[in-house]
Amino acid sequence: MSDLAAPTVARHAPEPAARGQVGDTIFRIATAGGAWLVLALLAGVALAMAWGGRQAFATFGFGFLTSTDWNAVDGKFGALVPIYGTLATSAIALLIAVPVSIGIALFLTDIAPRWTRGPIGMAIELLAAIPSIIYGMWGLFVFAPFMALHVEPWLIAHLGHAPLIGPLFSGPPIGIGMLSAGIVLGIMIVPFIAAVARDVFNAVPPALREAAVALGATRWEILSRVTLPYTRSAVVGAIFLGLGRALGETMAVTFVLGNAHDLSASLLLPSNSIAAAIANEFTEADTDLYRSSLIALAFLLFLVTFIVLTLAKLMLRRMDRGLGRTN
């Protein structure tokens, strides 16, 4: 099987065979070129970001990661606020998206009547097809005011003075901030996690499920004792995939996060994320150091998403092998 794609040297007249070999060589070079280009793209992006950010790294050193200063006038740049905003919004997004996605995957594999699975699955996939700028507009004009009017006053009144988590929910209810951005992000990554989770749930060998049913297991017992244990690493991989998306999402967050450079514990206050800072400020960056700092941020973002997505792939790969796909 493996040598199928190798050129066959035909036994007939030598001339056409030779011509075929020339064509083969050209074709092979062209397709391998495409493959190498994919590798070059990743390497190019990483190198270009590292190179573009070198001035910021050289000027601020390790302090770039720990400083909250972001002052274009004084030329002082620290990445802590955008880093914190990126992590906090992604964490909120995962808190929402993980249970919802697993519920949807369960619904689509076990519960929904068979004829509805296709349409419902497709509707959920459409959530992923909506351009992120639409999420951003909707978030800014519809969802943030809704949060400010109906949800945040309640949170402030009931959780604002609670021990430990109180500071997270204090401040004015303005709608724009990390909580709203995190929720919008969560909705955006649901389809990605749900699609992968559905596929891996479907890949559980029917014999296992049938055996559980034969033992009288309920649907909950099948999910918690058969499906989830069997697909655990792949489900974690799917979650990491969603996390990778959430970390790098730009437009939706830019609209809803508010572009503030103050570090605050409250999730209700405007903040910043790496991607939003770049989108908002890059065309206004008037000094080399400013521009370099933003590119250094992009480098950090790329590095972190690369690591997260690599972990996701590694965890999903075990499932792929189980599915009989040759990697």
Binding site: W36, V38, A275, I278, F282, F302, T305, F306, K313
Partner: peptide, 24 residues
């Protein structure tokens, strides 16, 4: 390797691609 890297590029932040083309 390419399949692995390609899957990562699939989910890579698009804003970084924008910066890359800006630099390039």
């Amino acid at each position: 390797t390419v399949r692995f890297i390609n899957d990562i590029l699939l989910s890579a932040p698009s804003i970084v691609i924008g910066l890359f083309v800006y630099e390039l």
